[in-house]
């Protein structure tokens, strides 16, 4: 959409400055506090053993090569892929399902209001609390095993976080629990923005609820869903606290993700350069995604 104010541009080139003025607080903040540190991190990634060493040597892409050929890094990538894709899809599905439930016009505003608050509860806790809460529940002698046992679904005291086969799934479930409300609320709002006329027309045409969902609801929600997926991808890929405080990347390497890998590189092995290189790789992936997102945004307007 061509903005009306653009017509002023012809009157004088000075006008170009206006949007930048409005953006200046944001840009100054980001330039000083974010771009400088990010630049430093990227710079570290081309040097040998920064921070520990007073006179680091330029090593080119050696750190990147080291990281990319590290088996551990590849395991972390694999686990992160699982963690992120399952989380993001589950967030979407659960968020959508709950939002559809809460959007019903079979219930009064008050009832829906109460359920909205209950459904948004996980959003209100800091990551370390969520981690200790779930660790308590996942304990072999914790409430989850107890409930499974009294309902005869299991007889063992399963070590959810301590087992190679369950740990990654268990940690992913925590992340699903912690972050779905963000989707739910956003989708709920999106649903309220869909015009009722569309549904009425569909009802007259005799469309089934399933068809209405796939042909009206989903397409109408598409822009908001894409924004949510992009943001969620970027946030989930660097989820650290929940994983570190529950499993620390173990058992063995079952829950090793990029964030725990980077942490160990930096603060346990004191290989800041390699940690920076890993961070550079994550930044690259997310930047590509962000460019796609921005392009998609442009197409929308």
């Amino acid at each position: 959409m061509k903005k009306i104010f653009n017509s002023f541009n012809k009157n004088g080139h000075k006008i170009e400055k206006t949007p930048y003025l409005y953006l200046s607080p944001t840009l100054i903040l980001m330039a000083v506090l974010l771009v400088i540190p990010i630049f430093m991190v990227l710079r570290y990634s081309f040097f040998d053993n920064v921070i520990i060493n007073n006179n680091p040597v330029f090593v080119g892409f050696q750190n990147y090569i080291n990281v990319l050929t590290d088996d551990r890094f590849l395991i972390a990538v694999k686990n992160t892929l699982f963690f992120v894709s399952v989380s993001v899809i589950a967030h979407l599905v659960i968020g959508l399902y709950f939002a559809m439930l809460l959007n019903t016009d079979y219930l009064g505003e008050k009832t829906k209001g109460i359920f909205r608050v209950i459904y948004a509860l996980p959003w209100m806790f800091t990551a370390s609390v969520i981690a200790i809460l779930w660790k308590m529940m996942y304990n072999p002698h914790g409430i989850i095993n107890y409930l499974l046992q009294i309902s005869n679904l299991s007889s063992a005291n399963i070590a959810w976080l301590g087992s190679r086969s369950y740990a990654l799934m268990a940690v992913t479930l925590i992340n699903i629990w912690a972050r779905y409300p963000f989707y739910m609320i956003s989708i709920l709002a999106g649903l309220q923005g869909i015009s009722g006329d569309l549904y009425e027309a569909a009802a007259i045409d005799g469309a089934t609820p399933v068809k209405r969902f796939f042909y009206i609801t989903l397409p109408q929600l598409k822009p908001i869903l894409i924004s949510l997926l992009t943001l969620d991808f970027v946030w989930t890929i660097q989820q650290f606290a929940l994983i570190w405080l529950t499993t620390g990347g173990g058992p063995i390497s079952a829950t090793e993700t990029l964030s725990t890998y980077i942490y160990k590189q930096a603060f346990s092995k004191y290989q800041y350069s390699q940690a920076s290189a890993s961070a550079g790789i994550v930044l690259l992936i997310c930047t590509i995604l962000a460019i796609f997102y921005a392009k998609q945004q442009k197409a929308r307007t």
């Binding site: 959810w160 301590g162 529950t246 499993t247 173990g250 058992p251």
Partner: peptide, 21 residues
Amino acid sequence: VSPGVYAMTESDMVEEFANGR
């Protein structure tokens, strides 16, 4: 050995012992 030791920290261990398990 008590189950769940692969993800267990020292303080988790103490809670197990304190509860007589």
